[in-house]
Design a protein around this nucleic acid. Sequence first.
DNA 1: TGACAAATAAAACAATTGTTTGAATTATTT
DNA 2: AAATAATTCAAACAATTGTTTTATTTGTCA
Lengths: 225, 225
Amino acid sequence: MNVRSSLADGKEHQDATRRHLLEAAGEVFSELGFQNATVREICHRAGANVAAVNYHFGDKETLYLEVLRHAHHKALEKYPLLLDAQESASPEEKLKCFILSLLSRIFDKGPNSWHGRLMSREMIEPTHALDSLVQERIRPMSEVLLGIIAEILDCPPTDERVVASAFSVLSQCVFYKHCRPCVGSLFPGLLPENDKGVARLAAHITDFSLAAMRGFSSKNRGKKR
Amino acid sequence: MNVRSSLADGKEHQDATRRHLLEAAGEVFSELGFQNATVREICHRAGANVAAVNYHFGDKETLYLEVLRHAHHKALEKYPLLLDAQESASPEEKLKCFILSLLSRIFDKGPNSWHGRLMSREMIEPTHALDSLVQERIRPMSEVLLGIIAEILDCPPTDERVVASAFSVLSQCVFYKHCRPCVGSLFPGLLPENDKGVARLAAHITDFSLAAMRGFSSKNRGKKR
DNA sequence: TGACAAATAAAACAATTGTTTGAATTATTT
DNA sequence: AAATAATTCAAACAATTGTTTTATTTGTCA
């Protein structure tokens, strides 16, 4: 143990198998889940020996935690929380950017698309790692969303209706990911296949949610609650 | 094999272990999923021997399919597809009934609450049984919802905006089920704990969605699209 | 270069899993 | 009641899994 303490942190070309293991494990875990993924398959894809996981990470579970942290880190640097919303933009515009950014992350193809799949899986079938995922990644994201919606509804961010509306927005976004096979079997046309489809879906969710909240806030103004 | 051919179909007290196995398997499968559930745990809960599953069902997988059919059958007879909305009610009232009924099913406690959990799991991580689940159970339900929303939006049920809005409603309903650990970790107060909580959640989703669609249809009338 | 640590590899270990076997028990039929 | 079929049971089997062990290779530093 304490294997890597003497190695400097800057050497990029080192720890090759460790990085290969992280990548391969990310793929396999996101495809099959923690239990169904086998150490042997991970090591095979990484081109490493079966004992590599235990040597570099101790055991399968800490490898999984390490993979989650790795994915979290890379996802954060690739997708900032507010994609390109100007600070000066209207809250409606910010909401639009937020939704498009979230959907883009969720439906990202490409070599690192397993990040989103892994997190979705963790949300649905949580392991011990869920807490840190929520605290480090999901809570900051929801804070941003709560702020936007509080602006739109003109309420404090802790107002129950703000929280409920935030979840209504989030739920629409993650639905197509979590229930992809189901939606695809019902209405294949609705599943976004490319950037254009993602943009169309984002537009609908934005329109739907903004219309809903406009109804709320007008009711607020009317009845003065 | 062909074990039960000579037994008459009416004897209720017979096949006790077979029924116990179905019940126990339903619980365990819904709690742990197909892979993580072990035949030994199922047999233990059913008070049967380890060999009972293979004797009565052949193997673990056909037991799972049998459990899904069993759950589907019991769910259908407990929750008719057309809920308790009067035919004369307004579409808004029907939508309210639909949402409340769906949430009640989803958050059903009680001895058979594993039906809902099993189906949620099947939607998220589908096996070969997903297709029949969609065709026999989910599609009819969505047809009802599409009809209600088409009335509200005053569009044909095939209109793309009707379909998208239906999914927006559905997504809000299933979100709290699929992401229960996540929501509970973020805002514990939002998870409905009893019938009152379910009713409150249903009221929010109904208000939110109706406000959204009112915005849609007023836009329709205004711009005549 | 030689000594020492780090990393890899092959093999085996221990535990768990679904499944099968064959005997014992229970129920049904003649 | 005897015979036969259906069911239950304890035990074992075969395959898979995460992990460990031991030996070998590779890299680093004196």
